[in-house]
Amino acid sequence: MKVAIWGAGTIGKALAHRLATTDFISELHWINRDLNKIQSRSTDIEHGLLFAPVCRRVTTASQKSASEVFDEVDMAILTQGYPVAQGDTRDDVYIRNREIFREFVIPSLSGKSMPIVLVITNPVDHLTRLLYRETDLGSSRLMGLGTVVDTARLCHSISGYVSPMPYPRDIWAYAVGFHNEDVAVTIPRMCAMGREFPPDLLEDIKRLVQIEIANGANRVKQATDEATLHPVIEGAVHVMKSIALDMCSVLTVSVHDPDSSNDLFYSVPCTIGNQGILERLDNLIPADTKDSMRLGIENAIRFLHSCGDA
């Protein structure tokens, strides 16, 4: 698969290096506002291609050339924009990142139905929605990283409370809704594929895993030395792998809600394959979790109204 990465912040840089060593990326095209910032790094990645499984080409492009790059690639990853400052919420950077998207990203995608686009820039749900409303990409080829990382943290956290301890990938639990403080978790009793999960401790464990998820998210937001962003990179790679290899993995990406008159995007479990979003699996979300997701939906509508974006 040929992929474009836009942005050279912490996530953009880490993704570029990581993707060159995967077994499903054949070409990597790196776009950035400032070419000087990525040219040396790009050359270093090229120098490592002798050892790369399949990647044979790495290029750099300024954002003025983004439209041409998008004509060549199967998938684009958007990481550019202002990061969330310490003490702020993801929503606090929406207005500024919306301007960046409107000025550069949306014109570059204008009139295109390709590539498949994965948004990582925060607030991920609202920016993915913005692209849906202002481009022709459509709902199946457009997704945000959403709560993929929250789900990864959730499954790992739960695995530590299950006996015998399973692999995190063997836990069937999901973080859903908006990628912010309103994220909701669903932990089915049989989430551990039949292994013992102490039912009388379910509520305590639910509370504890939510603390662990929030701690992980706070480390990323605080951007201290302890925040490696590793799960963000791995989550994005897994989404791309599922698309490249048509794996039909179930992932909680941020997707269009077809029942929302506001075109809201938020995370539900979806199957992901080479056409992008293959299917929303709303049936995996129990009624009580849907109830708690409603609060996030109301807050999102209120926020978008306040930004003149309803």
Partner: peptide
């Protein structure tokens, strides 16, 4: 590993019950 600490938490909660 974090799992050992989680076991201790689980045992603490179980014992309390």
């Amino acid at each position: 590993g974090s799992a050992w600490i989680k076991w201790m938490v689980k045992m603490t909660l179980m014992a309390r019950r």
